[in-house]
Write a protein that binds this DNA or RNA. Structure first.
Length: 883
DNA sequence: GCTGTCTGCCC
DNA sequence: ATTCTGC
DNA sequence: GCAGAATGGGCAGACAGC
């Protein structure tokens, strides 16, 4: 057993490499990584990993012009000057605890029924590609692991005693900076004698004379955590879910990121040292996943189902629950507090991480008739077995949001730290070596920090390029942290996290940020991100912005793409970054996003396609076995241009202009908006111009028309209702329903809900100032859709200025109903609060006619008849204010 | 088989 | 998507 | 500046319920 544990992270980790050396071994290794940089040869094959030359995956699938004026449009009738002070009151801050949502996914690894390491993705995975990739991965490493697993299971069968859990609970662990003695005392569920056989030989903490630093290194320094003795469970035993819940509690109790990461790091170290086979499940429960995103496995449960399950598990009524939810804003807390409502005959077996994970995955895989009932029952089974805070986190996991201040980035950081600190190299004497303890005497604080930073950089980089936790953990196990990137890197068949852009307020900010660097501007098309992979087996896959597999959504693109190559024979693999945009082949014009969104999404048949799509390519990330992420954008783009060819209406390059002239760019922006684009993307060409996946850095900039002063649609709308806030907005309203005024019917017509743009002070002010206007029931002259009925109604009192990116024909809202569409009303895209208009009365709010005019002004090509003559709409509605 | 509700995923 | 906030 | 957590409209798809 010990030998098998020792095989985790078996390859050298930093501690093996002269820790005292002044140059970071991690950094050195990374620099030497063969897969980096521009090379003709692909990185060396890695054991057990799919490689480009051995296709990771198999074929997935079978396969109006016009335009709005770029001019600013303001519905504002502005009689009063903008003298009103910022409408924020300074009431106390609102919310406190967080809460929310649903979902969770998992990886291929953890199995479903038996815990035998069988590959579950085969059944859950919708794609052959995943299955095949898994098959490739499931080689040596897996066999080793399976063997280890079996060994552990036979050797250690001891059940975890509930008293242990009680103890853990009773002794919350200390903070990261706690003194050694304190931290040793915490979380210890065994006596020292019991631990002896497992315990590391910890040297007494030395007097520390290291320089003070406010960083991770300092958080770890001075706190000796024995991943074995302090864990709370024994080697080989399943990780108790309570251990995870206890960690979540500590994390939830702080807002300090360093502490958050340190808490999780400790848990992960223990898992690595004691039960490495549970590591994937632990990580997944921390990131609310049940499978990698491209596997398409979702929980498929929301608050509705979860509330039913809670009711049945606790005996509460749905009515009570809803009321309580409105008040506390946290279903998890409610479930926790309601535990014990129902007497159970037998004390349920303590939950384990693998049990919880398996149940969640089972929920995700459940489908067909009465599947909702079966999902509900599975939730119930967890809740019934959950003790203490477990119920809280079980519910939140089901909701898909832990809301404890821990999300993906911090989990990756904690994982990197854990891999750095704890390498379960167990010697013949059964002692686990602890990297930190070992290197501590030799590493100065700044050096340690540098090592930690480098570890995090590597893990994050790798995860962005290959967002597949199972494979990364396997690689960590077999090759270690130092060489992780040699084995886990971008390869066709697995989606890379797409690079994102930072919103800027205008061209001037672009110049501020990019200074003297050469940059280019591209049209920002209003479509859907599409990452196209040509795998070396010749098959093509398409992934969405969130790494979902959209291959079966675009059989037309799959069929078209080979002809987009200059030289199909010479191009064996690629990854391109594109925007798929709805396109009218007749008028040769781009169609709005709303049209694109009506396309079928699954198993589309080419013959049935109603909405044509043009692919606008803007980046090349991989070509013929060569990752290009580290190349400059200038290089990548040039390769893109030389590898592909444009075909009108099918495959185009994003329209670009390399310029540093303000006026030229301004003109370009206006043209982009006229051409039905959202604005511009701005990217440096040479400096700082590598491809940086994910949020890690927003090195691209986006300039959208609605960010620009006076360019967006501004409306003044009446607050007619509000919704109770959840999570950190508990105690105030979380969202509001807004209306425009229709002078013809003298009614207030709902136009949108709104929930962003508020500072905490705004929310507090709104909550208190609207109190005086609460009414028990909606006014008869309110028009709104039933399903948006707010929790609280207001008489027409406050007018808010709201900014929106666009107006849309709405299936729900009532604004301007009958004016543009005979029945449907109009709503707003991306509405956000700007300020309170104290100078306006509700009747002075934006009128339904103005709303209709705003819609028409943008929409000549949307299929909804253009307004009469061009001349009369522009100015007319500014006079409407006179009513 | 039709309709309504819920969910996830696009933005 | 947009926005705000603690670190 | 990062990371996280609040919140938006609106669509297809999956199920429940009739």
């Amino acid at each position: 057993m010990q030998r098998s544990i020792a095989s985790f992270f078996g390859a050298p980790t930093p501690m093996d490499v002269a820790p005292a050396s002044s140059t970071s071994p991690l950094a050195a290794a990374a620099d030497a990584s063969p897969s980096r940089g521009l090379r003709n040869a692909p990185a060396p094959p890695s054991p057990g990993l799919p490689h480009d030359s051995t296709p990771a995956a198999k074929a997935g699938p079978s396969a109006g012009p016009a335009s709005p004026s770029p001019r600013k449009r303001k519905a504002d009738t502005d009689l009063a000057p903008d003298t009103d002070a910022d409408a924020d009151a300074d009431v106390g801050a609102p919310g406190r605890h967080p809460s929310k949502k649903r979902k969770v996914l998992s990886d291929s690894e953890s199995d479903d029924e038996a815990d035998n390491g069988q590959d579950a993705l085969a059944k859950g995975g919708s794609e052959g590609s995943i299955k095949d990739a898994v098959a490739l991965v499931t080689t040596t490493a897996d066999i080793t692991m399976l063997a280890a697993k079996a060994e552990i299971k036979t050797e250690i069968k001891t059940e975890i005693k509930t008293e242990i859990k009680t103890e853990i609970k009773a002794a919350p662990s200390s903070a990261a900076s706690a003194s050694p003695s304190t931290s040793q005392a915490t979380n210890v569920a065994f006596t020292r004698e019991q631990l002896t056989v497992f315990s590391a030989d910890r040297p007494a903490p030395e007097g520390d004379d290291e320089p003070v630093a406010t960083n991770m290194a300092e958080a770890y320094k001075g706190a000796t955590y024995d991943p074995i003795a302090d864990a709370g469970w024994k080697a080989g035993e399943p990780v108790p879910y309570l251990a995870l819940a206890a960690t979540f509690e500590k994390i939830e109790a702080t807002t300090k990121r360093i502490e958050i990461i340190a808490h999780l790091c400790r848990l992960l170290r223990s898992v690595i040292a004691l039960t490495p086979d549970d590591l994937l499940e632990v990580v997944y429960l921390c990131t609310n996943q049940v499978a990698p995103s491209f596997a398409g496995i979702e929980l498929g449960i929301g608050d509705t189902v979860i509330m039913k399950a809670i009711c049945e598990a606790t005996g509460r009524t749905l009515k009570w629950l809803k009321a309580e939810y409105a008040e506390t804003g946290d279903l998890g807390e409610i479930a926790e507090d309601s535990r014990g409502m129902q007497q159970t005959m037998f004390k349920p077996k303590p939950l384990t991480v693998r049990k919880v994970f398996k149940t969640l995955k089972g929920i995700a895989l459940e489908k067909g008739q009465s599947s909702m009932n079966r999902k509900k029952d599975r939730i119930k089974s967890l809740l019934v077995a959950g003790e203490g805070s477990e119920a809280r986190y079980l519910v939140r996991s089901c909701q898909g949001k832990l809301r404890i201040g821990l999300a993906e980035a911090s989990v990756l950081a904690a994982l990197a730290h854990a891999a750095f600190f704890t390498r379960p190299a167990i010697g013949d004497d059964g002692q686990v070596l602890d990297a930190y303890t070992q290197i501590k005497p030799k590493l100065k604080l700044p050096q340690l920090q540098a090592e930690l930073d480098e570890a995090v950089r590597i893990v994050k980089e790798v995860y962005c390029e290959l967002p597949w936790m199972k494979v990364i953990l396997e690689s960590l196990r077999t090759t270690g942290l130092r060489t992780l990137h040699d084995h886990c890197y971008l390869r066709p068949g697995i989606p890379i996290r797409p690079m994102l852009a930072f919103p800027t307020k205008g061209i001037s900010e672009v110049f501020e940020r990019f200074g003297g660097s050469a940059f280019t501007c591209e049209y920002k098309y209003d479509g859907e991100r599409a990452q196209v992979h040509l795998k070396s087996d010749g098959s093509i896959a398409i992934y969405s912005r969130s790494s979902e597999d959209n291959t079966s959504k675009y059989p037309d693109l799959i069929a078209m793409l080979p002809s987009a190559l200059q030289d199909p024979k010479a191009t064996t693999s690629y990854v391109i970054d594109c925007e798929a945009v709805a396109y009218d082949r007749v008028t040769q014009s781009i169609l709005p996003f709303q049209v694109l969104s009506t396309r079928k999404r699954k198993d589309v048949d080419v013959a049935d396609i109603q909405v044509q799509v043009c692919l606008y390519a803007f980046d090349l990330l991989y070509l013929n076995g060569r990752p290009l992420l580290k190349e400059s954008f200038a290089t990548r783009r040039s390769l893109l241009y030389s590898t592909f060819k444009a075909t009108e209406g099918h495959f185009m390059f994003a329209h670009a202009k390399d310029s540093s002239d303000v006026e030229e760019i301004q003109t370009f922006l206006e043209e982009a908006v006229k051409g039905n684009c959202e604005g511009l993307m701005v990217k440096t060409l040479d400096e700082n111009a590598t491809y940086e996946p994910s949020k890690r850095s927003h090195k691209w900039l986006k300039v959208k028309k609605d960010y620009l002063d006076g360019m967006g649609d501004t409306l003044d709308l009446v607050v007619i209702g509000a919704y109770t806030g959840k999570g950190k907005r508990t105690g105030v309203y979380g969202g509001f329903i807004l209306a425009c005024y229709d002078p013809d019917s003298e009614r207030f017509q709902s136009i949108c809900k709104i929930g962003t743009g508020f500072s905490d002070a705004d929310l507090a002010a709104a909550h208190s100032s609207l109190a005086a206007h609460i009414i028990p029931a909606p006014r008869s002259y309110y028009a709104y859709p039933d399903h948006l009925t707010p929790d609280v109604w207001f008489e027409p009192a406050q007018v808010w200025e709201v900014l929106a990116a666009d107006l849309s024909i709405s299936p729900a809202h009532k604004a301007a109903a009958g004016l543009v569409d005979p029945e449907k009303g109009i709503s707003l895209r991306f509405p956000r609060f700007v300020r309170l208009r104290e100078d306006k009365t509700p009747e002075n709010a934006t009128s339904s006619h103005q709303v209709a005019d705003l819609y028409r002004a943008q929409d000549i090509n949307h299929g909804y008849e253009a307004p009469a003559a061009a001349g009369d709409d522009g100015d007319d509605f500014f006079d409407d204010e006179l009513l």
